[in-house]
Amino acid sequence: MYNLLAGLKDYFKRQEIIIDNPIFRIHCTFTTVLLITFSMIITWTQFIGQPIRCIVDGVPPHVVNTYCWIMTTFTMPDAFYRPASQVAHPGVANNDGQVGSQKHYSYYQWVCFVLFFQALFCYFPKWLWENWEHGLMKTIVCGLNIGLRSDEEKTQKKSILIDYLIKHLNQHNMYAFRYWFCEALCFVNVIFQMFVMDWFFKGDFMTYGMQVLSFDDKDQENRYDHMVYVFPRVTKCTFRKFGPSATIEQHDAMCILPLNIVNEKTYIFLWFWFIVLAILTGVVIVFRTIVILVPKLRPRLMHARNRMVSEDTIESVTRKVSVGDWWILYMLGRNIDPQIYKDVISEFAKKNATAESNNPKFQ
C-alpha cells in the first residue's frame, strides 16, 4: 500500500517549464492524486478486514454478510430522530411493515470505483492541454530559463526566440484559447462532479457539509449526526431463505459497516474541497474573461510579472500584438530568467516596430 501511494509523488515534481497556472495544477494534479489516494485507501480498507458484519440467528454469518453486501442494507429514516432509548441504534428500529419508508444504501461497494473515475475526469483537462500544447513553450524557451549560460549562447538563443516571435506574430490565438478552454473545462468538471456525487448519494451530498456544520448548533436532545444518516455505521438487512417445508423464512439482520467510518471522513473533506475548488476555478474564469475583454489590463499584468521591463516598452508591445501573442509573452515571463526576459521584450519591441515601418501597408 505504501509503495502504491509513494508512486503518486511523481505528480508533484516541480515543472521545468510552466505551461499552466497554479489553480489549474491544483485541479488537475493535486485533486487527481487526492481522489486516487482516497480510492486506494478505501479499497485497502475493504480487503484488510470485513467491510460488513451482520448479526443474525440461524444463518451462517459469511452467507448473510455476502448477501447483504451485494443486495444492499437499509435504515428507517424516522429512527434517526427517536430518543436513544427507543432504538437499537440511530436509524435501526422496527419498520412495522413500512417497506416504502426504508432508506436503502447500495453505494458503499462502488465508492472506490467512483473516486477513481472522478480522478480520471479531473486529470482529463491536463491531458487534453498537454496534447494541444505539444511542448511549444519548452521549444521556444530554448533553455533560457537558466540564466547561468555564456553570453554567446544567450545571444544565440535570444535571437532564435525573437525571430520566432516576429515570424509567428498574431498566430497564437488558438494556443491561448485552447488553454483557457481547458481552464473552463476544469470549472465545468467540478460542478458536474458535485452533481454526480449528489446523485450517487441520492440527494444527500449537496447539503452534506452544511448539515454537519449545523450539528453542533442544535440541542443535544433535538439533533442527530448527519454523517451517520448519510453513512450509517449500523444498518438492517432482510435475508430470506427456504425452510424445511419450502416455506420462505425471513431473517432480520443487523449489519455493522466499519467502512463507512472512512467514507464519512472522506466525503466531508471532499465536500469542502470541491466547494473551495469551484470558487477558485470560477474566479479564474471571471479573471480570464476580464483579460480578454479589457486589453488595457494586459500590459499591467506583464509588468507585474517582470518589473525590470519598462512600462513604455510593455505598452508598445501589447498594443501591437494579439491576445494570443500577449499570452505567449506573459508565459515566457514565467519561464525565462528575468534579465534575459527584459532583453527579449526590448529587442522584440524594436524589431516589431522596424518590421511595421518596413511593411508597405503601414506606410
Rank of each mutant, 00 (worst) to 15 (best):
V284N: 01
F177S: 14
T37L: 11
L213W: 12
T207C: 12
M174Y: 07
K320Q: 06
N335L: 03
I23L: 01
N263K: 03
T235Y: 09
F181E: 07
F80P: 09
F195Q: 11
L213S: 12
M174H: 09
Y81K: 03
I140R: 02
T266S: 10
Y123G: 13
K241A: 15
P258N: 07
P60D: 03
T207W: 07
F12S: 08
K236L: 15
C112S: 13
Q50A: 15
L35M: 14
L4V: 14
M331L: 01
D216L: 07
G282P: 03
T45A: 15
D312K: 04
D312W: 00
P51I: 05
D96S: 10
G209A: 15
G97I: 10
C122D: 05
F116M: 12
I26M: 03
H226R: 09
I19H: 04
G91K: 03
V87N: 01
D78S: 07
P90C: 07
I36D: 10
P22W: 00
D204C: 08
H172E: 06
Q109S: 13
D198K: 00
T266F: 13
V284K: 00
R149I: 08
W129G: 04
I23N: 01
M331Q: 00
W110Q: 07
N21I: 02
I290G: 02
I160A: 09
Q15L: 11
F348K: 02
A304M: 10
P60V: 01
I42G: 12
L35V: 09
L34V: 08
T354I: 13
M71H: 14
S106L: 10
L8G: 11
F121V: 12
A304V: 04
I256Y: 12
M197Q: 10
G282Q: 01
R334P: 01
L293Y: 00
Y179L: 10
G333R: 00
L148R: 03
E356G: 02
G7P: 06
R223P: 15
T235L: 10
I290R: 01
I55Q: 13
E347T: 11
P22Y: 02
N359Y: 05
G243I: 02
R298V: 04
I162W: 04
D198C: 08
P60K: 02
